[in-house]
Design a protein around this nucleic acid. Structure first.
Length: 400
DNA sequence: CACTTAGTGATACAAATGCT
DNA sequence: AGCATTTGTATCACTAAGTG
């Protein structure tokens, strides 16, 4: 298939400089790289930066503004994220960090946009950091980036097929998000708001609800990391909700230490430190593992007494924004680095519904979690499908 | 275009505290 | 006292913002 450099089919440039002092809190939306990333991820952006109408009109008349079917691409930090300008879009963007592809020839912009999801093109985007501190996709590099280019009609057909595959992918992603929402709303439905506590459940401090004392995890200087060791969960593994199945870093420990720091599906891990105040003391569930698993010193292990408290309920409670605001965050120390220590964690009050009700919740959430596993698998399949189609399209095998 | 500065998260570390 | 454990902070790694 014929391959071209992007410089041949687009005028590639950037915007005029807009200084921070010229940012306004209303007017014409102003996008930085992060806004482009957000739009591409969620399809919309709650923009907080603007420039004045006058400035926009001034730049528009003097230098022009992005038009329908132009493409914007992030060029600093997160590289190669695209946004195709829609009809009627009215915004301006930051120079240097976003590259502007002005359409100058008869190509299908959507096709070009999909090119930026293929490994071949992404490799070109990421290659050669130019010796800069932060990886950049420069205008020069953009001009020289090669993409395959079939005739226009074929481009359109390919884009249409990829659209379908992409829609399928997005749908699965949304489904996953819906399951999370569902679990949260069932939590609220069954137990009521944890702050106003309308059902009048009793409250207990966490230390009264555990079968063993809270404890920081194993501290291992890096020289004892080894392929032959035991898998150890770090803060980065435990920051989001539930441990993903897969490989963690391994560390050499004695049997005694292994027993001491072992975790399983009846435990909840809590991140001990976080620079961000709201992010401190985030809980994480532990699924069943066939292999022994220990945890690192930046995490604290909670083992609830299952006669009165189920791990799932504890997780949802600690993860609920309202509960965190009312019961958890006040124990978070606020120095240069926010965090929670054992004393603080033990003093966190838990709204404690009867164990029977907690078990009902557990049964429901189990079903949802199982559905989530299935959804995750189909998401992976959808990704594969998409990538597969992309590969074929570029080899000219997808459409005649 | 590529620099400097800034923000954030993770890990390393040493001093403080606690336990026996 | 002598050790284990906890805690706060230093430092590294990384991404991103802002500017000459």
């Amino acid at each position: 298939m014929k391959s071209v450099e992007l410089g041949e089919i687009f005028d590639i440039t950037s915007s005029k400089r807009v200084f921070q002092s010229e940012w306004k809190d209303k007017g014409i939306p102003f996008f930085r790289a992060r806004e482009i990333v957000k739009i591409s991820k969620y399809g919309f952006v709650d923009n907080e930066l603007f420039i004045s109408e006058e400035m926009y009109e001034d730049y528009k008349s003097k230098y022009g503004v992005p038009k329908e079917d132009d493409i914007l691409i992030t060029g600093v930090g997160t590289l190669g994220i695209t946004y195709k300008v829609k009809k009627g879009d009215k915004f301006y963007f930051k120079d240097g960090n976003i590259i502007w592809f002005k359409k100058k020839s008869d190509v299908d912009s959507k096709f070009v946009q999909y090119c930026f999801q293929s490994q071949e093109v992404l490799r070109q985007v990421q290659s050669g950091a130019n010796g800069a501190t932060v990886g950049t996709f420069t205008i020069e590099k953009a001009k020289k980036t090669k993409i395959p280019l079939p005739p226009l009609a074929t481009q359109k057909k390919i884009a249409a097929i990829l659209d379908a595959a992409d829609a399928h992918r997005q749908k699965t992603k949304q489904l996953l998000a819906k399951y999370d929402e569902l679990a949260q709303s069932i939590f609220l439905d069954m137990f009521g708001d944890p702050v106003t506590n309308p059902k009048g459940w009793k409250k207990r401090t966490l230390d009264k609800l555990l079968t063993r004392k809270t404890q920081n995890g194993h501290y291992a200087p890096k020289d004892v990391y080894s392929e032959e060791g035991v898998q150890m969960v770090h803060m980065s593994d435990a920051f989001y909700q539930i441990l993903e199945p897969g490989e963690f870093k391994r560390v050499l420990v004695s049997d005694g230490l292994r027993k001491k720091y072992e975790i399983n599906d009846s435990d909840i891990l809590v991140a001990r430190r976080s620079l961000n105040y709201e992010g401190a003391a985030k809980p994480c569930m532990v699924p069943k593992y066939s292999e022994p698993l220990i945890y690192e010193s930046s995490l604290i292990r909670l083992t609830p007494d299952q006669k009165v408290l189920t791990p799932i309920y504890l997780f949802y409670f600690l993860n609920n924004d309202r509960a965190r605001g009312a019961y958890v965050l006040k124990h978070v120390t606020k120095s240069t680095i926010s965090g929670i220590n054992n004393k603080g964690l033990n003093a966190v009050e838990i709204v404690l519904p009867p164990i029977e009700l907690q078990k009902q919740f557990l049964n429901i959430v189990k079903v949802i979690e199982m559905e989530k596993v299935i959804a995750k698998q189909s998401l992976e399949k959808a990704e594969e499908l998409f990538q597969g189609l992309l590969q074929k399209a570029f080899k000219g095998e997808l459409v005649e």
